[in-house]
Amino acid sequence: MKLNTCLIMKSTFLKLGWLGVVLTVGSFRALALDGAVVIANSGVSAGSLSADALKDIYTGKTKYWDGGQAVIIAVLPDKTDAALQQACGMDTSSFKTFWQRLAFSGRGQEPKKAADAAALVALVASTKGAIAIVPADAALDGVKKIEVK
């Protein structure tokens, strides 16, 4: 009886070990934004962001830049969906619902929307603390490009 109990416990520990491996593997991700780049308002002090830091911004965990300026996310619906998914793990619909949940419960500010790439770049250029994912071929006038490491 005692032996059987030990075997069961060993089996359980093995399963937990596999679960740990699965979770650890699941946590590893290399970021590559297909056909898109990250830009920010020229007043943003950061010149680069880690993939995790970018995800923290797009999932509302990081709400302020160093120095206290509020992060304002700007989006271009339909044009950068794949890159958005790579950046934060959510597709466009999930991302929209996620931020509506935050905004209508008093916990966050909904991302601003732009109609096209030029309008998005102009929006980021004119909005303090703004960040956006734009198509790689967009003209980046008046904004800074953020390197994602």
């Binding site: 709400k63 302020y64 120095g67 206290g68 300026q69 509020a70 905004a103 209508f104 008093g106 500010q109």
Partner: peptide
């Protein structure tokens, strides 16, 4: 029906009302 307004008046500070 819900209507909310928010602003960031100071660094790291947000005011919001619904």
């Amino acid at each position: 029906v819900g209507l909310n307004v928010s602003m960031n008046p100071f660094p790291r500070t947000r005011i919001t009302v619904q």
